[in-house]
């Protein structure tokens, strides 16, 4: 059983919902990302998504675009992110998931990239611009390495696509809550419940909701519908505003608490 699957089982066994947090590596420095990741792990984050910044992130809104640009301007290289993952792996038990655009992986060489990710102790990979039609080789390579390739399901995905995605995916399914790009929204889409229900028809994998979750209330509402929530831009806004690490950690703890509160109530 993969580390990701094991972690979901543990969370479910406790009757809890999972909190997944996205960080853009190297924003504003690698040392900062490492320290923050450690604090977030202690604050109760269940999975950490380590974003490898990319120059042209078409699925991302302005907040993550700016984070990526800050990291790239600081000169971040992929090798350093593999080192960061390996270093974190020794300090925290939270499963690490890399998130990046396909060109970064393709340029590195698919086998090379997966091998290095595996050596660094990474548990999974999310590639927002890789639909199932183009995922063949990466999926096979990830499987051979015993790692999970996390697929995304969108509100625009048809039933037949959801079925194919469900059969290819492992670890969990990343449900995109909005038609649009990443970034904080004021409220959940009114269609979210129906969408999550539709996705659930085609898979038994845990369902995590991401894109636009901007605070404890929204996280709690989204968690009522799914198995976990993914928060990115809302945390990065605090990094951008130069809030203290402990403040960010307590914000993330409040998200986690909001999810669990709901779990106890239900």
């Amino acid at each position: 059983m993969s580390k990701i699957t094991q972690t979901w089982q543990d969370i479910k066994a406790k009757g809890q919902k999972a909190l997944i947090v996205y960080l853009s590596c190297g924003d504003p420095s690698l040392e900062y990302t490492e320290k923050l990741a450690e604090k977030l792990s202690r604050a109760g984050v269940d999975f950490l998504e380590l974003g490898i910044p990319y120059s042209d992130p078409v699925a991302d809104g302005p907040i993550i675009q700016r984070a990526s640009q800050r990291a790239l301007a600081a000169g971040i290289k992929i090798e350093q992110i593999f080192q960061l993952a390996a270093s974190l792996r020794n300090k925290i038990g939270t499963p690490l998931i890399l998130m990046t655009y396909f060109n970064v992986i393709y340029r590195h060489g698919i086998e090379q990239f997966v091998f290095k990710a595996s050596q660094a102790g990474v548990a999974g990979l999310i590639v927002p611009d890789l639909p199932l039609e183009e995922a063949g080789l990466l999926k096979k390579t990830m499987e051979q390495a015993g790692l999970d390739l996390i697929f995304l399901a969108a509100p625009t995905s048809t039933a037949s696509r959801l079925q194919k995605i469900g059969s290819l995916a492992s670890g969990f399914l990343y449900c995109v809550s909005v038609t649009g790009v990443t970034g904080s929204r004021k409220q959940l889409s009114p269609d979210l419940a129906a969408f999550i229900k539709r996705v659930g028809v085609y898979t038994d994998l845990p369902l995590a909701v991401g894109f636009g979750i901007s605070g404890p209330d929204m996280a709690r509402q989204a968690a009522q519908l799914a198995d976990g929530v993914i928060v990115g831009s809302a945390v990065i806004e605090k990094i951008e505003a130069k809030e203290e690490l402990d403040e960010i950690a307590s914000y993330v703890a409040s998200l986690k608490e909001a999810l669990n509160k709901e779990a106890h109530n239900s």
Binding site: V58, A59, F102, N103, P128, D129, L130, P131, E133, E134, F151, L152, A153, A154, P155, T156, S157, T158, R161, I165, V176, T179, G180
Partner: peptide, 20 residues
């Protein structure tokens, strides 16, 4: 098939666009 010219082309886009 699938929009390739030899090894070039394809459809490397987020899932949100695929149905369209």
């Amino acid at each position: 098939a699938d929009g390739y010219f030899g090894e070039f082309g394809g459809r490397f886009v987020p899932e949100i666009f695929m149905t369209a």
